[in-house]
Design a protein around this nucleic acid. Structure first.
Lengths: 230, 230
DNA sequence: CCAAAAGTGTTCACGCTACACCCATGC
DNA sequence: GCATGGGTGTAGCGTGAACACTTTTGG
């Protein structure tokens, strides 16, 4: 123990979990079932344990509450204000993740006391969790323009209109259907599947799938995903 | 102590300190004078103490080594790999900061065993510090296009050519002098001063100063600093 | 036939690029 | 006068924005 004279701290991870369905961007929140602040809404979190990295802890929390693995997740920022947790000094690293709601088992909701909230009807959260959410939203908005992370929120097969609706939900604005389609198609990242979705129109809309291999090859060649100016 | 059964950790901050002079982007590195890894180059860092936030700790480290306050600084990311510090389990939050080298007292160099290194001639650093530097560089490159942080690296008064040289050093490419000038001038963020710098040309080049008030007013009105496409 | 969403075409204006071209001055 | 960096002008091209238009099919 070389650094033995230094202070030691509790470290937590908190997860900002985004989902998307029916044209609405959502957040998974948790009704706290322990003190302090029992009964209030919060992000899902947990404490870091000695044998884990922060990423591992965040995945553990996420897997516990969603049952899912292989989820898009990224570290956001670390929060360390002295009074942020009322019970003890806790340093918390916030993560955000993107979930495909089709794969999410609704039975998990009751089991863990969690609920999906529309992003523009969020309740007040404990501690500095609202700040974490705002930061996550800003990050999502920025990243979704420069990397193809939006697809993480959609089912594997989707129509161009669904993809556009997702971006409309993220950026809270209408996008021109024709221009959006052209822009996304010009990147050559989507494979058109031999099926049509007949739910949304009489004509039917082709389903597409994001081709990650193509993206990685193109990325290596200097291409960058770019939806600035949508 | 509500969370008493949880593990506690040492927390450090490490500072990636950028400077700029004579057309070269530089990093301030420190020759470690204590074990472990004594004698190797590293980022400047320190441990978080109970009465501090991470930001405070980072400013403390920065002030100690530069004697400067009011420096641009931003949290980068938190590193938590289990073996990252060979002596003990340490979670480290990296910060990066931008320094105006004209204000930096060269006497500090010997006093603290630190040295400026050109960004493209960095030595090997201890632990995961090289990774921190890479991440900081990526962040700097991104941010310098969307926020006026480049000015933090220059003296208060500078010529447009100096500003362009700075961006050329950050992005490692040549920029068209005319186009760069027009682009930056069109934002109306610079005040032209009634002096000329006569060192670099016979004609002399006007000195300018970044007007932060203008920037903040414009920002509030939906304007955003944008040098994408330079 | 009509409504409604899918998908295509077309025009316009703006902004970046590239490069030519003056300006001022020390030598 | 000429070399040098400061600073301006401008033609051309590419792309986003706006919107008209065609396609398909269930009711």
């Amino acid at each position: 123990m070389t650094y033995s004279s230094k202070d030691r701290f509790l470290i937590a991870v908190d997860c900002v979990i985004f989902g998307y369905s029916e044209g609405v961007l959502k957040l998974l929140l948790y009704k706290r079932d322990f003190e302090p602040e029992k009964g209030k809404w919060s992000l899902m979190g947990g404490f870091l344990s000695k044998k884990e990295t922060l990423d591992m802890a965040a995945y553990r929390v996420l897997a516990r509450i969603t049952g899912l693995r292989n989820i898009y997740m990224e570290q956001l920022s670390t929060f360390s204000e002295i009074g942020r947790d009322v019970a003890d000094r806790v340093i918390s690293t916030a993560y955000y993740s993107l979930i495909n709601l089709e794969e999410y088992d609704p039975a998990m909701l009751k089991k863990h006391g969690v609920e999906w909230f529309s992003i523009d009807e969020l309740p007040e959260l404990i501690f500095d969790h609202n700040e974490m959410v705002e930061k996550a939203l800003r990050r999502l908005k920025r990243k979704a323009k420069s990397e193809p992370i939006g697809f993480e929120l959609l089912p594997e097969k989707f129509t161009i209109t669904q993809l556009r609706n997702l971006y409309e939900a993220i950026y809270q604005c209408k996008l021109d259907p024709g221009n959006f389609r052209r822009k996304i198609m010009s990147m050559n990242l989507l494979d058109r599947l031999p099926y049509k979705d007949m739910n949304s129109s009489k004509k039917g809309a082709y389903l597409y799938a994001f081709n990650k291999e193509k993206y990685e090859i193109l990325s290596g060649n200097g291409f960058s995903f770019d939806l600035t100016g949508i």
